[in-house]
Design a protein around this nucleic acid. Structure first.
Lengths: 210, 210, 210, 210
DNA sequence: CATGAATGAGGATTCATTCAT
DNA sequence: CATGAATGAATCCTCATTCAT
């Protein structure tokens, strides 16, 4: 009986169509911006019928939501996998600095795999509605909290000078996000992101003092 | 003849109406976001007829453009007035740091006077169209260039360590903008912006080293 | 007391303003067509305020009506003055033909004085509303009736061949109007209207036969 | 798979809807005039939604344009099919006259099939914009050129008297168009168009001479 | 399940007309 | 009397969404 195979094929086809729509959506969103993008732009890009869109998503907002969800899930996964946690307890200022560098560099592959999405969310998400703005801010805040936790820890262990760790954590995340945006906008044309990370870490840890 | 007085009165009335529309627009934009704002929202807020809007602006984009223009003009004025330039040549690292602090603090009143606009542009301008995104980036770039100029100068005079001044300038502006956004979003509820500036400068100049 | 003089001056000024508006209106109507013309176009051309228009006319239709009235009155005057009537009873076919030629040539100066109006009415009047279409047709019909009267007369006197004078009268007026339109559109660039009249009369009276 | 049949059915449906809109448009245009007609009048007549109009046409002007295009194409087809050319070389003045009569009579069925359109264009087209006025004039000019060609030919063969063929051709077309307008306006209530053609030809060829 | 024609509510835009100065 | 700023009704036009095939 082919019915089972048929069903399997159907499911695969459906998943393919959905992925096709998601991929098309992100391309168009990125090019025209979320607000200027029409459903018809997405289905034209995906080369499917207008009605097909509504078999998979209820609205433009929903497909955007799903795009964001995929990204945040990947980040959360990376977080919860413990990859971002310090595995070795640093013993010196330099070790602590190197470890921080390593922590940021671990995020690079995720961002590299999701360049389009990251760029889209950094630009458009906060202008859609309050819920999205909140969600974006929550993600940022998590990074801030993580950074603060490290900073507090480092001060306790006397690796770094005393400071208002809440503010400094925000400043660090501020650097990261702005740098990321510039990099995604190809502002540092021939520069590898690793170099940016290294220079950032050096600035934060060593400052500009000779 | 009263014709001249009449005309004068008319001109003042027109300017008042236009200002009313601009003020109303910024309030509504800020509350609902540029994209969700309808012309009818603006005229309702301004308590004028729908047609009145079109006597002064051709579209929603145009009124936004004018709001941006007013802000950039004020900034450019501040720039060109030389207020942002170093007046005293610093002689030591500390003098240089203090001077930088002072430079940033000079921007604070402009931002304070234009809180709404600044917040609006940082959030919405880049999502309207490419032209706006470019314009915003151009403004940022000017600050980056200024920062780079100072950095180059400081390195030449041996006040600070050698570094890739282009990147570091971007990092500094990144800190500033992100901090600004957070502050405008009332993230640092009870914190004075001066404290943020001071902490930022300290981070950039001294790093986290003990 | 200057009050009387003042009043006189006021009246003259009013007449001047009204004439200014009428002249401006016809120019704009001719250029953009009645329907595409806005009141604002007319007052801009006349260099008066928007409100001034409404001191003299209640609507766009009314100013058009007045323009038409002036023309029809002039034509009616010419008619009633008897200028268009045969003064001499023709005695031969040739005399009759010459007389007809003269009758048409008498209309030339009126048309020449009112070129703009004639062109405007021939093009736009019938598209404004039924009343205007009727009025235009009535004018045409009067000419047709006149022509028919002459034709009947001529047949009775054995100057011309028998024919359906209603139809032929219409045909003759058709020739005249179409020729007029072409001439007003500068289709016969270097041709004097007299030549057109002569050729027309020749065609109607003599046909193409050798 | 039914996809092909489906598509076929869709295409037919679309064509039907479009035709429905075109038919409705012409009816409303004719009744209210082009300028007084609103898009909503057309869709109400066609009994479709407002948005449906915009699936097929971008504006009122565009649907009018398409109506005109259909008519001109039919005329051009008739022209190029050679039906309007002389098939038999006339040998006498009478033969030439009969042939001319036949030529005009050949146009009658086209006009009869397209009464509405012809009437619409003769009345409204020239009041829409310059482009339309030009297009209309071009069509008239083609007929003038054809008439002139015949006249030149006839003079060469000594069938008719010498004359300014350009002017006379214009005069003839003027007769035709004016007559046509009157006929379409039901001015000759009980008169068959053939009678009009015959009387016109007689006038042009034989004149009024006995 | 896929399709795309049809829909109409929502929002933008125009312009004749009013009226306070 | 002249003015032109203000008005809002009228109309255009878009596009997310539905639904019959």
């Amino acid at each position: 009986m082919p019915s089972k195979l048929r069903k399997q094929a159907d499911i695969e086809k459906k998943q393919k169509t959905k992925k096709n729509l998601l991929d098309s959506a992100i391309k168009v969103f990125l090019l025209k911006g979320y607000h200027k993008t029409k459903i018809s732009d997405i289905v034209t890009k995906a080369e499917v019928g207008q009605g097909t869109f509504y078999r998979y998503f209820n609205s433009k907002r929903e497909i955007f939501e799903e795009l964001l969800k995929e990204l945040t899930e990947e980040i959360v996964l990376e977080f919860s996998s413990g990859n971002l946690n310090m595995k070795i307890t640093p013993k010196t200022f330099t070790e602590y600095m190197d470890m921080s560098k390593a922590a940021f560099l671990q995020l690079v592959p995720i961002i590299d795999r999701n360049k389009d999405r990251v760029q889209l969310f950094l630009r458009d998400a906060s202008t859609i509605d309050q819920d999205f703005e909140d969600e974006i801010n929550e993600i940022f805040d998590q990074f801030v909290l993580l950074a603060k936790y490290y900073l507090d820890n480092a001060i306790e262990n006397n690796f770094i000078r005393k400071c208002d760790t809440k503010i400094v954590a925000e400043l660090i995340i501020g650097i990261v996000i702005h740098t990321l945006k510039n990099w995604l906008n190809n502002k540092y044309n021939n520069l590898h992101i690793e170099e940016l990370v290294i220079e950032s870490i050096k600035l934060v840890f060593l400052g500009l003092k000779i």
